[in-house]
Design a protein around this nucleic acid. Structure first.
Lengths: 145, 145
DNA sequence: TCCTAATTGAAAGTTAATTTCAAATATCAT
DNA sequence: ATGATATTTGAAATTAACTTTCAATTAGGA
């Protein structure tokens, strides 16, 4: 996968810059994460990783994701309650629509909302650093039933 | 406080309807919560409640807030990480701006964003049940320094 | 007042995240 | 290639926030 290799290179660059090491576990975890290219719980990624190497433990996946987050290559999301999800930080900014029935997550981006939000903040003199906008409801598939 | 009494009446109505009991602890907790009228962690509300009655425990505050939530008189929010916050559900819907320096929370509501969000969802056939829109950054006061 | 179901509070249990630590491993300098 | 050394790994222990359990207490209708 093309994209995965680019992201791996970025990871190697970060590791080198920080004096950290390249290990086979980290390599496997990051590669798996990037190629799945979706929103995953730590446990879910662990399962995928263990298909390749059953000896890798939860903590190693946990730490690898933490590292990816620090390096800017992954985002950690906290939808609703429960475990957090990680997603590769490939494209630009986007927000999320979460199906409360099947759990499916759709990304969206809307220029009008983004701009309007800037205006709302400016009006009260608030300086935006980040934001999250999540829409919960039923995806098309789950409305059929 | 006028508003507090109205909310207390709504609570009593709910309790009666559900066959639940009116107790001095619940009364104190709800009254304190409504009169503070802000975003509070369970622990924070506990501290306030204990100023009046030191014997009230964490679990009782926890359960009282759960009840207020079920009755629609409080909303539970999960900003960032850590503990959740509860706020009285007095007014209508609103979203939040959170200062990442001082923790101050400002509410906002914008018709343009609300409407636009409906359109975005409609476009992909997603049926909105709820949403949350949080803006993180620096409040006016924290930008001065 | 009495009876019964609801409530309280302390302690125990749960869930997800995080830290600790000894053994293993990667990288740097020979 | 070899050795020295700092990093990494994985299991187990710890933490943090929330939730449940259970015996004793209390509210409120009969």
């Amino acid at each position: 996968m093309e994209e995965t290799n680019t992201l791996m290179d970025r990871l190697y660059g970060y590791l080198h810059k920080k004096g950290l090491k390249q290990t086979k576990q980290r390599d496997l975890i990051a590669r798996t994460f990037f190629s799945l290219n979706t929103h995953l719980k730590i446990e879910e990624l662990l399962v995928e990783v263990q298909k390749k190497d059953p000896k890798v433990g939860y903590v190693t996946v946990y730490r690898a994701l933490k590292l990816l987050k620090e390096s800017g290559l992954a985002h950690q999301r906290h939808f609703g309650e429960g475990q957090s999800l990680f997603e590769p930080a490939g494209g630009g900014h986007h927000d999320h629509m979460i199906c409360i029935k099947c759990g499916n997550i759709t990304e969206f981006e809307d220029e009008v909302i983004e701009r309007r939000q800037e205006e709302v903040a400016k009006k009260i003199g608030f300086k935006i650093v980040s934001h999250r906008h999540e829409i919960y409801g039923a995806c098309p598939k789950c409305q059929e039933e």
